[in-house]
Deep mutational scan, measured.
Amino acid sequence: TTVEVQGVEYRFDNPEEAEKFAKKMAKSLNLRVELHGNKWRVE
């Protein structure tokens, strides 16, 4: 599972970890998070 934060990609073996990371990043950067296939995008 991939998390893309403002163009930078982070890879996770565990989808739940990816989701937690994406939501945490979105909250700290005041952005929103969307799931596209198996990629979380924070923008």
Score class of each variant (00 low, 15 high):
residue 41 R to M: 14
residue 17 E to S: 09
residue 32 R to I: 12
residue 5 V to E: 01
residue 25 M to V: 10
residue 16 E to R: 09
residue 30 N to T: 02
residue 23 K to W: 09
residue 27 K to I: 10
residue 13 D to N: 10
residue 16 E to I: 12
residue 3 V to R: 00
residue 26 A to D: 01
residue 39 K to G: 08
residue 15 P to C: 15
residue 33 V to M: 12
residue 9 E to V: 13
residue 37 G to Y: 04
residue 31 L to M: 13
residue 31 L to D: 02
residue 5 V to R: 01
residue 28 S to T: 11
residue 30 N to H: 10
residue 25 M to R: 03
residue 40 W to P: 03
residue 43 E to G: 15
residue 3 V to F: 02
residue 25 M to F: 04
residue 35 L to D: 02
residue 43 E to Y: 15
residue 3 V to Q: 01
residue 10 Y to M: 04
residue 34 E to I: 12
residue 7 G to N: 05
residue 28 S to F: 13
residue 8 V to F: 09
residue 25 M to S: 04
residue 5 V to L: 12
residue 35 L to R: 12
residue 33 V to S: 05
residue 9 E to Q: 08
residue 10 Y to S: 02
residue 18 A to T: 00
residue 14 N to F: 08
residue 21 F to S: 00
residue 16 E to H: 12
residue 21 F to C: 14
residue 17 E to Y: 06
residue 43 E to K: 09
residue 34 E to L: 07
residue 38 N to T: 06
residue 35 L to F: 14
residue 33 V to G: 03
residue 7 G to V: 01
residue 34 E to C: 15
residue 17 E to H: 08
residue 36 H to L: 11
residue 14 N to T: 11
residue 6 Q to H: 12
residue 3 V to A: 02
residue 41 R to Q: 13
residue 43 E to H: 11
residue 10 Y to A: 02
residue 25 M to A: 07
residue 8 V to T: 08
residue 42 V to L: 07
residue 8 V to W: 06
residue 24 K to R: 12
residue 26 A to E: 03
residue 36 H to F: 08
residue 30 N to P: 01
residue 26 A to R: 01
residue 38 N to H: 05
residue 12 F to I: 01
residue 41 R to A: 07
residue 16 E to G: 10
residue 20 K to M: 13
residue 4 E to N: 08
residue 42 V to P: 05
residue 43 E to C: 15
residue 7 G to S: 04
residue 26 A to T: 01
residue 26 A to S: 05
residue 41 R to K: 12
residue 41 R to W: 14
residue 39 K to Q: 08
residue 9 E to M: 09
residue 2 T to H: 08
residue 22 A to V: 03
residue 33 V to R: 02
residue 33 V to W: 07
residue 21 F to K: 00
residue 16 E to A: 11
residue 33 V to F: 14
residue 36 H to P: 01
residue 37 G to H: 05
residue 15 P to A: 12
residue 43 E to D: 13
residue 13 D to F: 07
residue 25 M to G: 01
residue 34 E to G: 07
residue 24 K to N: 12
residue 22 A to L: 03
residue 24 K to D: 13
residue 23 K to S: 06
residue 12 F to E: 00
residue 16 E to P: 03
residue 9 E to F: 09
residue 15 P to G: 08
residue 4 E to A: 08
residue 4 E to F: 11
residue 13 D to A: 10
residue 31 L to P: 01
residue 35 L to T: 05
residue 17 E to M: 08
residue 27 K to R: 10
residue 11 R to T: 12
residue 28 S to R: 13
residue 27 K to G: 08
residue 36 H to S: 11
residue 28 S to Q: 14
residue 21 F to D: 00
residue 2 T to N: 05
residue 33 V to P: 08
residue 3 V to K: 00
residue 1 T to Y: 15
residue 5 V to W: 06
residue 39 K to D: 07
residue 3 V to C: 14
residue 24 K to W: 13
residue 33 V to E: 05
residue 28 S to V: 13
residue 35 L to G: 04
residue 16 E to V: 11
residue 33 V to N: 02
residue 17 E to G: 04
residue 26 A to K: 01
residue 42 V to S: 04
residue 40 W to D: 03
residue 25 M to Y: 04
residue 43 E to F: 15
residue 16 E to Y: 11
residue 6 Q to N: 12
residue 26 A to C: 07
residue 14 N to V: 07
residue 38 N to W: 03
residue 23 K to P: 00
residue 9 E to Y: 06
residue 14 N to I: 08
residue 30 N to K: 07
residue 20 K to Y: 11
residue 5 V to P: 00
residue 14 N to D: 14
residue 32 R to W: 09
residue 37 G to L: 05
residue 7 G to Q: 03
residue 1 T to I: 12
residue 32 R to Y: 09
residue 43 E to W: 14
residue 40 W to I: 10
residue 41 R to N: 06
residue 15 P to W: 08
residue 25 M to T: 06
residue 34 E to D: 07
residue 41 R to H: 13
residue 19 E to Y: 10
residue 11 R to D: 07
residue 25 M to H: 03
residue 18 A to F: 01
residue 39 K to H: 10
residue 33 V to I: 13
residue 31 L to A: 14
residue 31 L to C: 15
residue 20 K to V: 10
residue 20 K to G: 08
residue 19 E to D: 04
residue 32 R to D: 08
residue 35 L to C: 15
residue 11 R to C: 15
residue 32 R to V: 13
residue 15 P to K: 07
residue 41 R to F: 15
residue 18 A to M: 01
residue 33 V to C: 15
residue 14 N to G: 06
residue 19 E to A: 08
residue 14 N to C: 15
residue 22 A to N: 00
residue 29 L to H: 06
residue 21 F to G: 00
residue 27 K to P: 01
residue 43 E to N: 12
residue 36 H to A: 10
residue 32 R to T: 13
residue 21 F to Y: 06
residue 20 K to D: 12
residue 34 E to K: 09
residue 18 A to K: 00
residue 31 L to H: 06
residue 12 F to G: 00
residue 37 G to S: 04
residue 2 T to M: 12
residue 41 R to I: 15
residue 34 E to S: 14
residue 19 E to M: 08
residue 15 P to S: 09
residue 24 K to E: 14
residue 20 K to I: 13
residue 27 K to Y: 08
residue 2 T to P: 04
residue 13 D to W: 07
residue 42 V to H: 02
residue 30 N to F: 04
residue 22 A to Q: 01
residue 31 L to N: 02
residue 16 E to C: 15
residue 15 P to V: 07
residue 27 K to F: 07
residue 18 A to I: 00
residue 17 E to N: 06
residue 2 T to Y: 15
residue 39 K to L: 08
residue 11 R to K: 13
residue 20 K to C: 15
residue 27 K to M: 11
residue 12 F to Y: 04
residue 32 R to K: 12
residue 20 K to F: 11
residue 9 E to A: 07
residue 3 V to D: 01
residue 24 K to S: 13
residue 40 W to V: 07
residue 27 K to A: 14
residue 32 R to Q: 12
residue 18 A to S: 02
residue 37 G to W: 02
residue 19 E to G: 04
residue 36 H to V: 14
residue 29 L to Q: 05
residue 29 L to V: 03
residue 10 Y to W: 09
residue 23 K to C: 15
residue 18 A to D: 00
residue 18 A to V: 00
residue 6 Q to T: 06
residue 18 A to G: 05
residue 40 W to M: 05
residue 30 N to A: 05
residue 5 V to M: 08
residue 42 V to A: 04
residue 22 A to R: 01
residue 23 K to A: 06
residue 10 Y to K: 03
residue 12 F to N: 00
residue 29 L to P: 03
residue 19 E to S: 05
residue 22 A to G: 02
residue 1 T to N: 11
residue 10 Y to I: 05
residue 8 V to G: 03
residue 9 E to K: 06
residue 38 N to Q: 05
residue 1 T to Q: 09
residue 37 G to V: 03
residue 9 E to C: 15
residue 20 K to W: 12
residue 37 G to R: 03
residue 33 V to T: 06
residue 28 S to E: 15
residue 24 K to M: 13
residue 17 E to L: 10
residue 39 K to T: 12
residue 32 R to H: 14
residue 1 T to R: 09
residue 30 N to L: 05
residue 11 R to Y: 14
residue 41 R to Y: 15
residue 35 L to W: 13
residue 13 D to L: 08
residue 11 R to G: 06
residue 11 R to W: 14
residue 35 L to V: 09
residue 22 A to S: 02
residue 33 V to A: 15
residue 3 V to N: 00
residue 23 K to V: 09
residue 14 N to L: 09
residue 31 L to F: 07
residue 1 T to D: 07
residue 40 W to C: 07
residue 41 R to L: 15
residue 37 G to Q: 05
residue 13 D to S: 10
residue 33 V to L: 13
residue 7 G to F: 03
residue 15 P to F: 10
residue 37 G to F: 04
residue 29 L to D: 03
residue 8 V to R: 11
residue 15 P to D: 07
residue 26 A to L: 02
residue 19 E to Q: 06
residue 22 A to W: 02
residue 8 V to H: 09
residue 37 G to I: 03
residue 43 E to I: 15
residue 25 M to W: 06
residue 3 V to L: 02
residue 36 H to N: 10
residue 13 D to Q: 10
residue 40 W to A: 03
residue 2 T to W: 14
residue 30 N to M: 05
residue 37 G to N: 11
residue 8 V to P: 00
residue 16 E to K: 11
residue 21 F to Q: 01
residue 16 E to M: 12
residue 22 A to T: 01
residue 10 Y to N: 02
residue 21 F to L: 02
residue 20 K to N: 11
residue 19 E to T: 03
residue 30 N to Y: 04
residue 35 L to Q: 11
residue 42 V to E: 06
residue 9 E to L: 12
residue 16 E to F: 11
residue 42 V to C: 15
residue 19 E to P: 00
residue 18 A to W: 01
residue 15 P to Q: 08
residue 31 L to I: 06
residue 3 V to W: 02
residue 22 A to K: 01
residue 11 R to E: 11
residue 19 E to I: 06
residue 41 R to S: 11
residue 27 K to Q: 12
residue 2 T to C: 15
residue 28 S to H: 13
residue 32 R to G: 10
residue 3 V to S: 00
residue 43 E to S: 13
residue 32 R to C: 15
residue 22 A to P: 00
residue 15 P to M: 10
residue 6 Q to R: 11
residue 8 V to K: 11
residue 31 L to V: 09
residue 28 S to A: 14
residue 36 H to D: 13
residue 9 E to D: 07
residue 35 L to N: 08
residue 36 H to Q: 10
residue 2 T to D: 04
residue 10 Y to Q: 02
residue 37 G to K: 06
residue 28 S to D: 14
residue 7 G to T: 02
residue 18 A to R: 00
residue 12 F to H: 01
residue 11 R to F: 14
residue 42 V to W: 02
residue 34 E to M: 09
residue 6 Q to S: 09
residue 42 V to Q: 03
residue 26 A to M: 03
residue 30 N to W: 04
residue 16 E to T: 10
residue 13 D to V: 08
residue 27 K to C: 15
residue 35 L to K: 14
residue 26 A to Q: 02
residue 24 K to Y: 13
residue 5 V to F: 09
residue 9 E to I: 13
residue 13 D to P: 09
residue 1 T to K: 06
residue 37 G to T: 03
residue 13 D to E: 12
residue 12 F to D: 00
residue 18 A to Q: 00
residue 42 V to N: 02
residue 24 K to G: 10
residue 10 Y to H: 06
residue 29 L to I: 02
residue 18 A to N: 00
residue 17 E to A: 10
residue 19 E to W: 09
residue 2 T to S: 10
residue 8 V to Q: 09
residue 12 F to L: 02
residue 30 N to S: 05
residue 22 A to I: 04
residue 12 F to T: 00
residue 42 V to T: 05
residue 7 G to C: 15
residue 15 P to I: 06
residue 14 N to W: 07
residue 34 E to T: 14
residue 6 Q to D: 08
residue 30 N to Q: 07
residue 26 A to I: 01
residue 21 F to N: 00
